[in-house]
Structure formats: structure tokens, C-alpha cells
């Protein structure tokens, strides 16, 4: 499945299987994490009554999930999607944690 970018040699079966597993992991775990954190962030910080903010986050979350899942399989390398998903998720998770438990905002 993966193209061996550097050498151009035909990929082995094991490499192909690992590549699919990595992409599946990024799509499922990364996709859900991004969707969940996005929903939580919108619920917390959208300037509207909180029940509305929670609902907005929920309604949008499935689109976020689908976006990450598609990117995980469309991108040339799974690692790249994992990087960008983490770059979105980690700061957001940190900010949410501080907002909820650290007394900020």
C-alpha cells in the first residue's frame, strides 16, 4: 500500500499492512479525538447560551471526524496527518484542561 518514497522499491506485504494499520489508527483515534475536543472547545467558548454552544459542537463534530478520517487515507504519509491532528488536539486539550481545572477562563 505505501509508496516507498525514498527508494522507489516495491513495498513488502508487512510494510503495506503496517501502513494500513497506522492510517486506520490515525483515522479512528485521531478523528474521534479531534471531533471530541472540537465539540468540547465550541461548547466551552462559543459566545452563546451554553446549551446552544454544546449542541453546535455536537452537530459539527461528525464533519470533523470525517475530515480527519478521509485525510488519514488521502495523505501521502500517515505520519503527516498524525502530526497535524496532534498539533490541533494537544494544545486544545491543554487549554480545555486548564479552563476546567486550572481556573482560567
Amino acid at each position: 500500500m505505501p509508496r516507498s518514497a525514498s527508494t522507489g522499491a516495491p513495498p513488502t506485504r508487512l510494510a503495506a499492512a503496517l501502513d494500513v494499520a497506522a492510517r486506520t489508527l490515525v483515522a479512528a483515534v485521531g478523528g474521534y479525538a479531534a471531533a471530541a475536543l472540537n465539540a468540547a472547545g465550541l461548547a466551552r467558548w462559543l459566545p452563546m447560551p451554553r446549551v446552544e454552544a454544546v449542541m453546535t459542537g455536537m452537530l459539527a463534530s461528525f464533519a470533523v471526524f470525517a475530515l480527519v478520517a478521509i485525510c488519514a487515507f488521502a495523505a501521502a504519509r500517515a505520519g503527516r496527518v498524525a502530526f497535524w491532528t496532534s498539533a490541533y488536539c494537544v494544545p486544545l486539550a491543554l487549554a480545555l484542561y486548564l479552563a476546567k481545572h486550572g481556573g482560567v477562563a
Binding site: 471531533a35 471530541a36 468540547a40 466551552r44 454552544a53 454544546v54 461528525f62
Partner: peptide, 8 residues
């Protein structure tokens, strides 16, 4: 997707 509820 209950995480928004938990956050708010």
C-alpha cells in the same frame, strides 16, 4: 459525542 456536555 458527549464531550461538549462534559466541558460546559
Amino acid at each position: 459525542m458527549p464531550w461538549g456536555i462534559a466541558a460546559a
